[in-house]
């Protein structure tokens, strides 16, 4: 895997934060992807209008394809086996609903306003991610 220039990573992060900032100041909404997805698919019945949530969710792949076509084509390397992919997807879907948010809603939006719930949630999922990868790579794998 090629190293990524930290300035490019910073710029990409700034775009993510700018999107969250605009959605807040224009429409008053938290840019949380798991919540938007649940709302867009009708799994959640509170939040923004379903059509608005769907528009946000559809925008994500559009933005990715635009960058891929005109700026840089990101490598996408999935190393996990299919059973792990399915297990991971189930856990991410279930966990983000139970915990009311993911990397965007808690990590980018909630942390930015120092919400105690978001700080606790972010510390928990980051910690769980560090631990899981540590165990998978250095205990089981090593």
């Amino acid at each position: 895997m090629e190293p990524l220039n930290p300035l490019v990573a910073l710029a990409g992060g700034a775009l993510i934060g700018t999107a969250a900032a605009l959605l807040l100041l224009l429409s008053g909404r938290v840019a949380g992807v798991s919540g938007m997805l649940a709302r867009a698919t009708g799994i959640a019945d509170s939040g923004p209008k379903q059509s608005h949530a769907l528009a946000f969710v559809l925008g994500l792949p559009i933005g990715a394809i635009l960058v891929s076509a005109f700026v840089r084509t990101p490598e996408v390397i999935v190393t996990s086996s299919i059973p792990l992919i399915i297990a991971g997807g189930l856990l991410v879907g279930f966990g983000t609903r139970l915990g009311n948010g993911c990397t965007s809603g808690h990590g980018v939006c909630g942390m930015a306003r120092l919400s105690p719930r978001s700080v606790a949630a972010t510390a928990t999922f980051m910690g769980a991610g560090f631990l899981l990868v540590g165990v998978m790579r250095h205990v089981i794998g090593g």
Binding site: G89, V92, G95, T96, C102, T103, A128
Partner: peptide
Amino acid sequence: LLVGGAIFGIGWGLVGYCPGPALAGLVL
């Protein structure tokens, strides 16, 4: 909140996808 966050973090660590990148990455 904490159990949900931990379950999410484990799934994240199993594959490397959280919800936003999983949706953006559908077209890659």
